[in-house]
Simulated scan of single mutants.
Amino acid sequence: MKKLTIVLLALLIAMTVGSGVIMAQEDYTILVMPKLVGIPYFNASETGALQAGEDLGVNVEYAGPTQADAAAQVKMIEDYITRGVDAIAVAPNDPAALSPVLKKAREEGILVLDWDTPADKKLVDYSVHQIDDQAYGEHIVDLLVEEMGTDEGDYAILTGGLSAANLNSWIDYGLDYAEEKYPDLNLVTERIPTDEKQQEAYSKTLNLLRAYPNLKGIIGISTPAPIGAAQAVEERGLSDEVAVVGTSLPNDSRPYLKSGALDVATLWEPDKLGYLTVYVALEALKGNEITDGMEVPEVGKIEVWEDGKTIIMGPPTDFTAENVDQFDF
């Protein structure tokens, strides 16, 4: 009887402790905020973030503005600070505009992360990146030259928003690389903002094609930009004359890759990025260290830089007419 009592007591303690751990995680609330909601890229990130919440036993709220608006992000973050969330992971539309509210969040004891797009490095506990920005920017330029079939001639760059730090970083690295490796490439105009909208990229590309009849290539940075560019190029019957490459989802890219209007789309798996963001936030809330080479469920091995806070998910994937049907996001 005494032994049975001890066994039952041990089981009761184990169940209580186990329950306590789970409840502690469920008591955490992590806000994951994209630049905007309602576009396929951030819809896929939402799927991953919410799946992580379910798998890891933590409350995840995925919320953002309906337009790529930094002021709207600030207001929403203010509201979540008042509600008392434990962690805020944000993809800033304008890093400088968000600095005061992120500083306030830290002062309130809230864990602050950025993901997808960097915020002020001094204000974040962790910075979750898809890829190495320099390697990615250079890779995109190499893709353009490869698809143009020449390393000389006119090209243009469409971007999402002029304040988006991650997009600017890829473009800046790419321009530096092009200047050094492909000096005969000619950027016909400054990077062109498209407000993260396919229709805007489409109309801006039509203007480009009229203004620069010798244009040989277009880079689209932001997931809607390459699609809008390809739509315009296809409409004008210039798929064989103007190469289009850029950062886009395979499902959006598929019809244009198949038609030849879009030559290559390059990206990562955004659902995994959403998952990784929640995983990192939860581990940090629990006081666990995030280490280089660690294996993250549903994601794989990650890279952690020497600063201890920059996390790289992994290399990009290139989507082409030949392989795009292997992907569904």
Rank of each mutant, 00 (worst) to 15 (best):
V7E: 14
G20F: 14
V21M: 13
A24N: 15
L36Y: 07
N43T: 10
A44T: 09
S45M: 13
L50A: 03
A52I: 08
V60R: 01
Q67M: 11
Q67N: 10
I81E: 11
V85A: 08
A87W: 08
A89V: 09
A97C: 06
S99Y: 09
P100D: 11
V101L: 05
G109W: 14
G109Q: 09
G109Y: 12
I110C: 06
L111R: 02
V112L: 08
T117S: 14
T117D: 04
P118K: 11
Y126G: 00
V128W: 00
H129R: 11
H129Q: 12
I140P: 00
L143W: 02
E147A: 05
M148K: 01
G149K: 07
T150G: 10
G153V: 06
L158P: 10
Y173S: 05
G174C: 12
L175A: 12
A178C: 12
Y182F: 13
L187H: 03
R191Q: 15
I192H: 04
K197C: 13
K197W: 13
Q198L: 14
A201F: 13
S203A: 15
A211D: 15
I218W: 00
S222P: 14
A225L: 10
Q231C: 00
A232V: 00
E234G: 15
R236W: 14
S239V: 04
V244R: 04
T247F: 13
L249V: 09
P250S: 10
N251S: 05
D252E: 13
S253N: 06
R254T: 09
Y256L: 13
S259D: 09
A261I: 07
L262V: 11
V264D: 05
V264H: 00
V264P: 04
A265T: 05
L267F: 04
W268T: 09
E269M: 06
P270M: 11
L273T: 01
Y275C: 11
V278Q: 01
V278Y: 01
V280Q: 02
L282A: 07
A284M: 10
T291C: 03
T291D: 08
V299M: 03
V299C: 00
G300F: 08
W305K: 12
M313P: 01
M313Q: 02
M313H: 01
P316D: 03
T317H: 07
T317A: 02
N323K: 03
